[in-house]
Design a protein around this nucleic acid. Structure first.
Lengths: 245, 245
DNA sequence: GGCCCATTTATTTGTCATATTAATCGATTG
DNA sequence: CAATCGATTAATATGACAAATAAATGGGCC
């Protein structure tokens, strides 16, 4: 294993190599990974480093290891999907439209309520942070800033403004997934074109403490994105059946 | 460290000891933990086992460790709250009413949409599993079964019936939190008394594919529980201010 | 004299190598 | 059929050295 690489230590490098390999299906649930000894040989590192990597993957729910049985991949239901690393490996392995839809279905739930909670809580400082991100989105429309970063910041700041640690924690989850899915949806259509107006409407509702309006505005935005994906899924299905007919 | 204890190996024992200590505030964010060497001494185990425990806690986002700086507790926003271990440590450390409310605010978001998705997806086999859990709740009312287990199974099965891996994964999260919070709310009032009727209404809506009704029924149940907690919070606040007056 | 920057030093984790122990699956044998 | 034995694999222990880096140190400059 390349020792100079990427500022990460050997253990972390191996964690990412194995995590990605598991996520992309090179090792499948139920399958065994190579034994500790083999992994040491394959990557040219010591047992300590190897074992520590295995322990980290175990902690994230991807594998188990027991004497005599070796190291096995856990069923996907045991993976900690909400761990940013795990999510990143999965999304980078296969950023499918199906998974994108599933992700949006979750955002639909989370962000609608988050908007409502933020509107209810009225933490002025954190609401201001949402406004700042909105301003950056406007500047991005004029080409002065990175539109992706501004968009992400907007959504993260809403979660922060709930002052609910569970929602705040979901920020890192949504950020990871958003980076992948934005790259993905931008290929389909100009998803984020008319987005500033929508985002402003949502911000105004939160700012004024209009709980129902905030929930509705958030839901509308998510529903729009979801409809786009589901339309694309339908289209591909029809194309597929025509092609095979 | 007691080597015969609890079927867990030394590393896992230390993980749980330290995880619990961090969650209950013995070590606070920003603070340093004892060095590797000290931890070995304190617990009477080798450096290998100690280091592997540290790596597992690192993987869960609770700590970082760097040469010369030592081991430090991460800010809470970095903790993987959705890791069942982490959540368990936190809830067992301080099952406060505030956190219970925050948890319910999250369930409100998740389970409402999950009910809608389950109603839309109409996976007959998984809907039947919800029905089976409901039946167990009925039997539990007559004292034939454990009411807590049946209640949990009901909610988990709705998440499974979404066929969305993100919602499915949240099952283990909600299960962990539910076990604690049920123990907690039962002390306050007979929360789960009239619950069978509510649960049946929700099940029927999912079973018939009535998306809006399913979302509404789930929302109503959650809102009821939430109102109870918030009422209790208000009551205690008033009592507190009277007491200090 | 006091301040800033380069250098050194000391501490702590990172990595390696090797030996031994414990758990467990499968075969063997009474 | 059951108890036992053997082989395989991870679990634990130990000791050594390397690398990273925070803090102390000292030298040069204003």
């Amino acid at each position: 294993m390349d020792r100079q690489q990427s500022g990460r230590n050997l253990t972390q490098q191996l964690v990412h190599v194995l995590g990605a390999a598991i996520a992309n299906g090179r090792y499948r649930p139920g399958d065994g990974l190579p034994s500790e000894a083999s992994l040491c040989d394959e990557h040219g590192i010591s047992r300590s480093a190897t074992r520590e990597a295995i322990k980290m993957l175990t902690a994230k729910g991807l594998i188990t290891s027991r004497p005599r049985q070796g190291i096995r991949v856990q069923p996907r239901a045991r993976w900690n999907l909400f761990d940013p690393d795990v999510l990143g490996w999965i999304l980078n392995a296969s950023p499918s439209l199906e998974m994108l839809r599933e992700f949006l279905q979750l955002r639909m739930a989370i962000e609608k309520e988050a908007a409502a909670l933020a509107a209810a809580d009225q933490d002025r400082q954190k609401v201001a942070a949402i406004g700042a991100a909105l301003q950056q989105m406007k500047e991005a429309e004029e080409g002065l800033r990175d539109p992706v970063e501004a968009d992400i910041a907007f959504h993260i700041n809403i979660l922060n403004a709930t002052n609910n640690p569970f929602y705040v924690q979901l920020g890192s989850f949504i950020e990871t997934a958003l980076r992948v899915s934005i790259r993905f949806t931008n290929r389909i259509k100009g998803v984020e074109t008319a987005s500033y107006a929508n985002h402003k409407k949502l911000f105004d509702a939160i700012d004024r403490g209009e709980i129902l309006a905030a929930r509705a505005a958030s839901g509308a935005m998510q529903a729009e994105a979801l409809a786009l994906i589901e339309g694309e899924l339908d289209r591909r299905e029809i194309e597929g059946s025509v092609a095979t007919a």
